[in-house]
Simulated scan of single mutants.
Amino acid sequence: MLPGRHHRPRAFHAAAVLLLGLAMSLFAIPAEPSSALAPNDVATNARAGETSSAQLPDSFQWSSSGPLIAPKPDAAHPVVSVKDPTVVQAGGKWHVFMTTANTQGAWSMAYTSFTDWSQAGSAPLTYLDTNPDIGNRYAAAPQVFYFAPERLWYLVYQTGPPSYSTSTDPGNPRSWSAPRTFDNAAGSGTLDYWVICDSAMCYLFSADDNGHVFRSETSVGEFPGGFRNTQLVLQDSKSALFEGGAVYRVQGSGTYLLMMEAIGSDGRRYYRSFTAQGLTGRWQPLAATESNPFARSNNVTFPAGAWTRDISHGELIRTGNDQTMAINPCRLQFLYQGMNPSASGDYSQLPWRLGLLTQTNTTC
């Protein structure tokens, strides 16, 4: 098995998590799905006029690009890997934020942008530690979105606890504010934070590398403050629910999709998926086994050659860029991290690169 990643200082208190799990129900009580927030004047927000009634299939097939985004080391940034991508489209460009690791095992973040995926490999990387408000701190696992009620961009990431920076211009790496911490959110021993909102509430999902998925909540009006009511919403073995979680609203429906990275019996990373009706609904398996995964080496083809056996921490391409995290089930694409199958050694030194999956078995 691949060694577990060490993206954050570990302040994990096993006894506290055990008590939390005993104190909380395993599944949240299903609730009626809420409608999405009305879009603001973001040019790429495609939710207005949704009519799709398409559903997610029960199984998936994908075709993968080769590596599209690779490290671009310089004298100040001896970077060996790029990973954990988050991606939005705004202003006619793709904006990608990612985790970086250097030769000393230090974790930070980088940004790139381009108008077409064919340009991704040649687009420059800007390291976010060059922004003095972020600086040379531990930072990893970003998620970017436009919070329409405030007309403000958010970059959610981990600095140990769940943190965020804000900006009015996602294309300007120096515009991001210094990180602030989400209050009262699940944070001790958790990682890979993910925010998603419906019309009334915002939810923060996280994992603990030990088979647990948590959810905290606040109202849209209180966001980014007021998080409370932490729930344990999924539980399985450590390898079956590991990390890299993400949650999306299926466009034109009340269905939500939760993806979680797992470690397979071959030691390779892959994704399982679950669905629920509403963000507080009960998560049911969709494509969630090694033989029927959401995305794994056994349901991905590589026309240019199999450059990875891991389908690891990534993000689906959204239909818009706001806090509702909507996806079109007819045109799924998945930006993910993979690496040379022969690579080994310390997790921080593994040569992760970013590639793009495109679904090939759509029924729409």
Rank of each mutant, 00 (worst) to 15 (best):
V87P: 01
M260A: 14
V213A: 05
A110T: 05
T275Q: 01
V250E: 04
L56I: 11
S167I: 07
A207M: 13
A120S: 04
N292Q: 09
P124D: 05
T115P: 03
F302M: 02
P73N: 06
A38P: 10
V247Y: 10
Y138N: 15
Y347G: 02
S237L: 11
A276I: 03
M325R: 08
S237M: 09
E150W: 12
G189V: 02
A139Q: 07
S35A: 14
D41F: 08
H77A: 02
P170G: 05
T51G: 05
S253T: 14
Y336A: 04
E315S: 15
P124Y: 00
F334A: 07
P142D: 10
K238L: 13
A262M: 10
L286N: 11
L125P: 01
F334N: 10
Q231D: 07
T255W: 03
T86Q: 09
A70R: 14
A110G: 10
G187P: 12
A306K: 04
S108M: 07
N298S: 13
G92K: 03
L357N: 12
D266C: 03
W352V: 07
A287I: 11
L257W: 03
L19V: 04
P161E: 03
N184Y: 12
L20Y: 00
A185P: 13
F114M: 06
A295R: 11
T280V: 12
A343K: 07
I69R: 02
P303D: 01
N184D: 15
F242K: 11
L22H: 03
A110F: 00
A276D: 01
G92P: 06
W62D: 06
G121P: 02
L155I: 06
S53F: 04
